[in-house]
Nucleic acid binder design. Structure first.
Lengths: 202, 202
DNA sequence: TGTGTCGTTAACCAAATGGTTAAACATTTT
DNA sequence: AAAATGTTTAACCATTTGGTTAACGACACA
């Protein structure tokens, strides 16, 4: 995400932008070169092939996605604060990069094999258990309704990410314009938090 | 969705399959012809261009998506039963066609303008208001916690659809295999229903 | 100053791809 | 049965696209 202007990085930035918007098959090497303001041959000089370049962008994006996901469920806060800050951070984070989720989801579905490799790099899914145990504890004590922790986690993630992924469809169905959508997502932070906490009350 | 074997329909079926899996830019006319077991020229004979053929498939898919969405919130049931059957039907429906949501979401994001046209056909989003009013009534009476109806509706949709869209990622993160995922979605029907109803208790 | 390395470009290439055509084949019409 | 109409195919075409190449220029360093 740095903005140094060495050619190498200009290329990655351009590739990120083009691939994110158009996907692997939709992106043209020439578009990336144009976006970076350089000759097409440079792309191959630095990154051999379209696939190699794409791999870099996708890996980076998956990591970003996973680390965000990870951030949601880690930390030392109590459950309530943790959920509150998780939802808040997640929605804010994606707002800054709204194409990221659909890009990752789509490309991974297109080639699920690719994800296997990605998991070897970076310490990805550690704190999930922590959150689960925190939940279990509350449920034992009786302060929380009994729910499947995985179902809950996926529900929280769903409620945060899905609206971004379905944005044009939702805006059309509920006749919302762009500013309206942003406000909607801002309001959504509080809604999801209260919704989840309320659903967890025994 | 019929299985008549006129060439015209064989083509549509093949196109549906290929476009759904690979998207507009990823799909090759030759692949569609092969899938249909006919000569490539037939595609153009019946449907002029790739774009025209794609439009048909996408329109059909969007309609399917919207009518499903619509079915969720219509009907004469009481709120609790409505939510229960909605979640149930939605998850079952998508299970039969798991690629549909990501396909629609992705292609609409790729070309949001396209959706405008789609909305002219078919009576799409009528009963949304009905559900909203049903909610408002309950909130007035005090039998339901006060929530924004749109936020709620989108949350229900999110929880039903998102897991399918993010399937490979979720299976990797939570280390779930294919049968495990199907069981997960089956269990999810009850989870989401109870989760929502629980969240709505005042 | 000359030589070698690295970065950059224009021109080029082969394969892939959407689309066309002309002729063969089948079916219906008269 | 022959003419007309509709369906199907192999061969072809123009363009696009990922990738290569050969030459040029800049900078270091001997």
């Amino acid at each position: 995400m740095q903005t140094t202007n060495t050619t190498e990085q200009q290329i990655i930035e351009a590739a990120r932008k083009i691939f994110m918007h158009r996907g692997l098959t939709g992106a043209r090497m020439q578009d990336i070169a144009d976006e970076a303001g350089i000759n097409k041959a440079m792309l191959h000089y630095y990154y051999r092939s379209k696939d190699k370049l794409f791999d870099i962008v996708l890996t980076e994006a998956v990591d970003q996605m996973l680390s965000r996901l990870n951030a949601v469920f880690s930390g030392d806060l109590g459950l309530e604060d943790k959920i509150r800050s998780a939802v808040d951070n997640y929605i804010s984070g994606i707002s800054e990069n709204p194409y990221l989720p659909l890009f990752v989801l789509n490309e991974i579905n297109q080639n699920p094999g690719r994800i296997a490799t990605r998991f070897l790099s970076a310490p990805n899914f550690p704190n999930i258990l922590g959150f689960a145990q925190q939940l279990m504890a509350g449920m034992e004590k009786g302060t929380l309704r009994r729910v499947d922790p995985v179902q809950l986690m996926i529900s929280i993630i769903s409620m945060c990410i899905f609206p971004f992924v379905a944005r044009p469809l939702l805006q059309a169905v509920f006749t919302v314009d762009d500013p309206g959508f942003l406000k909607f997502m801002e309001d959504r932070k509080a809604f999801v938090t209260e919704f989840v906490l309320s659903a967890l009350r025994p």
